[in-house]
């Protein structure tokens, strides 16, 4: 019984003399490969060119700042709870007087670590965050020689301050490219 209409009966009759010289089919095949010389190459030269990601791509994490350059994160721990891979750990600390320009709320994350070897880039932390503090960007984690290098601390994750270091901010946003 034919399952699809594409099935073709195999011809098992012995080869004719011309066929047994293999030459006609060889020339046919060579024609096919030759036509591929003129085809467009789908390869992207990676470090120079990058593939355009879709806006919903979930890449490396970013800890966000608000308009005045203050950290959004309050170390509530909802992201760590939401994380199915248990990749996020944090330590909270209280904001001292005089640090109002650094942290938006009274509590902030003194330590914030994501283990990129555990992370599955599901984006649940982004959804769980009530303060818009964590985002998944459109880059991915670069290779590293040691496992230690894959534990990203706050200095790796935090986006540069828009007001005090505009160049680094622009670079992180990919604006000057």
């Amino acid at each position: 019984m034919a399952l699809t209409n594409r099935s073709v009966a195999i011809d098992r009759s012995p080869m004719t003399f011309v066929e047994s010289l293999y030459l006609p089919s060889i020339f046919k095949g060579m024609g096919i490969t030759f036509s591929h010389i003129f085809k467009k190459k789908p390869t992207i030269n990676y470090p120079e060119q990058t593939r355009p990601f879709s806006p919903v791509f979930r890449g490396l994490h970013v800890l966000n700042r608000d308009e005045e350059g203050r950290e959004n994160c309050t170390a509530c721990g909802l992201c760590a709870v939401a994380c199915p891979a248990e990749a996020i750990t944090m330590e909270a600390a209280e904001r001292l007087p005089g640090e109002e320009n650094l942290y938006r709320e009274e509590k902030y994350a003194a330590k914030y670590e994501i283990n990129m070897l555990r992370c599955i880039f599901c984006g649940l932390c982004e959804e769980a965050c009530p303060k818009d503090a964590i985002y998944l960007s459109e880059t991915f984690a670069p290779a590293n020689f040691a496992r230690k290098g894959f534990i990203y601390g706050k200095d790796d994750l935090l986006i540069p301050n828009k007001n005090t270091e505009p160049e680094a901010y622009a670079k992180a946003k990919g604006l000057n490219q």
């Binding site: 490969t33 030759f34 591929h36 010389i37 085809k39 467009k40 190459k41 789908p42 390869t43 030269n45």
Partner: peptide
């Protein structure tokens, strides 16, 4: 590489 629509060593 060229016959297989690739770029080859570059």
């Amino acid at each position: 590489a060229i016959l297989q629509d690739r770029r080859g060593p570059n």
